[in-house]
Design a protein around this nucleic acid. Sequence first.
DNA 1: TACTTCTCGACCACCCTGGTCAACTCGAAG
DNA 2: CTTCGAGTTGACCAGGGTGGTCGAGAAGTA
Lengths: 212, 212
Amino acid sequence: MDKFIALDETKQQKILNAALKEFAENGYEQASTNRIVKEAGIGKGMLFYYFKSKKELYDYLAEYSLDFMVKRYFNLIDASEPDFIERLKQIAEVKIKAQSENRSVFDFIGTLLLAKESDLPVSIQKKYENMQKAGNAMLYEGIDLTLFRDDVDVEKAFKLIRWSMDGYQNELLHRLEGQKLAAIDFEPYWKEFYGYLDILKKSFYKEGKRER
Amino acid sequence: MDKFIALDETKQQKILNAALKEFAENGYEQASTNRIVKEAGIGKGMLFYYFKSKKELYDYLAEYSLDFMVKRYFNLIDASEPDFIERLKQIAEVKIKAQSENRSVFDFIGTLLLAKESDLPVSIQKKYENMQKAGNAMLYEGIDLTLFRDDVDVEKAFKLIRWSMDGYQNELLHRLEGQKLAAIDFEPYWKEFYGYLDILKKSFYKEGKRER
DNA sequence: TACTTCTCGACCACCCTGGTCAACTCGAAG
DNA sequence: CTTCGAGTTGACCAGGGTGGTCGAGAAGTA
């Protein structure tokens, strides 16, 4: 595995991407090391020269992905914005950027929690839980509750707003399926997105508190 | 296949459920006829006595599921309710009932569209498209637009409301994972759900139009 | 009894699996 | 120019799973 780390960046990336994609699409059991080496353009032997087993490769990917997530996504979020919708908007921007930078990492992490109570090393499980905890904190900490209408339960408003925004993002992702995210001009989609955000503010915030 | 139809209901159900579950969980290629017969409690030979190939079984399931969907779900929806949120609420009730009646059918249909441009018989593809069209009509036809606030685009409000309700339902399904749907007392969840609906009405409808 | 219809699971040829390893390349050290 | 060892390959292995077949018997019917 130290052999792998010594490789030059581009070769590492090629192998990582091939493996992440394979695991993300097929899960651990159904993922094929043969397909990985073919996609990565290396001989079968090399994979097991770098990683002594399929499992070790998988664990390495898990750790790598979580680190990527923290470095390239979480750390770039400004958690000081007190306006809930504005904060989510900013998170969405960072997320899209990180996602087009490396889509397969996100897909892979998505499957990590599906592998229910998986036999990942405890250290990685810990890392995962911490990430979830930090993510939650970044969503709700320091939010200005006075922006919200007085006649709705704020907790529920949080959820409704999140579901709405997730809904938009999923639909968009579905609409853009197949296209290379990095090659897309997101300008019009952001406009559309902001349109929805305005409605959410009109709907869930007090009158007169809509503008910032 | 006519041999299969001649079977008594309960045996048919056992085989159907086993097959639906297997295909839903693993997709067409990865689904195993061996696991299906084991789960269904029949000998391997019988499956190919009833259906002459894996493909014929799959096509039969597709047709069966679509018919189930129409008969046990679509046809029970009252599309005359002009209040959008009330209509969605009613749809949700029917859906939950149909889903607990036969969960695997829903899961299987969910994978049908993932099998992109699959090589299903045209007749079944047609049936599927018709179902989607009818579903859309039932959502939006005859809705009373005057209920909505004047300062938001109704089309966008539609989407926001749907995303919100889908979000709740997904979260709930996720929360209840593993439990047998039919055995759950949904009372408290409906209450919670209605709570969200009230907020949606407060937020997206004109003042004074909230009650019915 | 004789004939048809059901039912089973051992069996088939084939494919793919994760992992190994003898053989080869190639640049650096002596 | 030789030697060495790290890097690299893909044929190969045993094992297991695949969709589908079929001979043999069970059950039902006349």
